[in-house]
Design a protein around this nucleic acid. Structure first.
Lengths: 124, 124
DNA sequence: CGTCGGATTTGACGTTTGTCGAAACCGAGG
DNA sequence: CCTCGGTTTCGACAAACGTCAAATCCGACG
């Protein structure tokens, strides 16, 4: 409509952006912490962190589970479980095509996390 | 043990590491994941995320535990435990002065995390 | 159809985590 | 020296987590 405030435009359903100034510049409020902490937690496992990076850096923006699994020592079901965790956190998206499942990154949330971690703008 | 390892152990392992291009630009290697995942995990709790932000945004760069505790519903010992987690992760530093303990942020690691989450520069 | 292969779900397991209360620690003042 | 207030550590316990093997689901292809 007429409000030029680009911050809190739409707050429809689940994964909305109560977006976040850098935490070094302003205290994170409880509601934001409740929403963003699970995303950090999802990245707080070495396997998931690698999975996330493989998905985010995949050429073409997507990668097949069959290309993810052989890079790890853990079983396929464990990989699947970790992928579900990333999915539930809103960090990735999955699409089934034929017999294979492809994952792609959801840049929105990751951008929020990056902004939150960004150094305070008054830094020297 | 040939190392006088006491001081080296106290130093966060990632203060001046050269690593971490954005994970959207390049896959993060296992060793890096092993090193940085604990930091994400440490931020993966709502209380700790708020604690971290209160410390990082504290005027003067530091804040007393006595100013942190009353902002939460949980007990003082729980706050202390969370602060230890942040300390162990290398995200904050503590200094005792008189009867009070002051915490301050360690920007190094947080900057690495931010870089890792930064959007890939070759994205379209 | 029936079967095969990739992926997810289920059930079970040991481990880790978040929380509390109680106890211990540590400076400061009486 | 003894006490007091702020902080951390110690046990304890339920909940959540990471992992695996087995079962299940879901397209594809004989």
């Amino acid at each position: 409509m007429s409000k030029p405030a680009a911050t809190a435009d739409l707050l429809p359903p689940a994964t909305q952006t109560p977006c976040c100034p850098p935490m070094a510049a302003q205290r994170v409020e409880p509601a934001t912490a409740l929403q963003l902490a699970p995303a950090f937690k999802a990245l707080g496992d070495p396997v998931r962190l690698q999975l996330m990076s493989m998905i985010a850096s995949a050429p073409g923006g997507e990668i097949c589970v069959c290309d993810l699994t052989p890079s790890f020592e853990v079983s396929g079901s464990t990989i699947s479980h970790h992928l579900k965790t990333l999915r539930d956190a809103g960090l990735v998206d999955a699409e089934r095509r034929a017999s294979w499942v492809y994952y792609r990154a959801r840049p929105g949330l990751m951008r929020q996390l990056a902004t939150l971690l960004a150094p305070g703008d008054d830094e020297s």
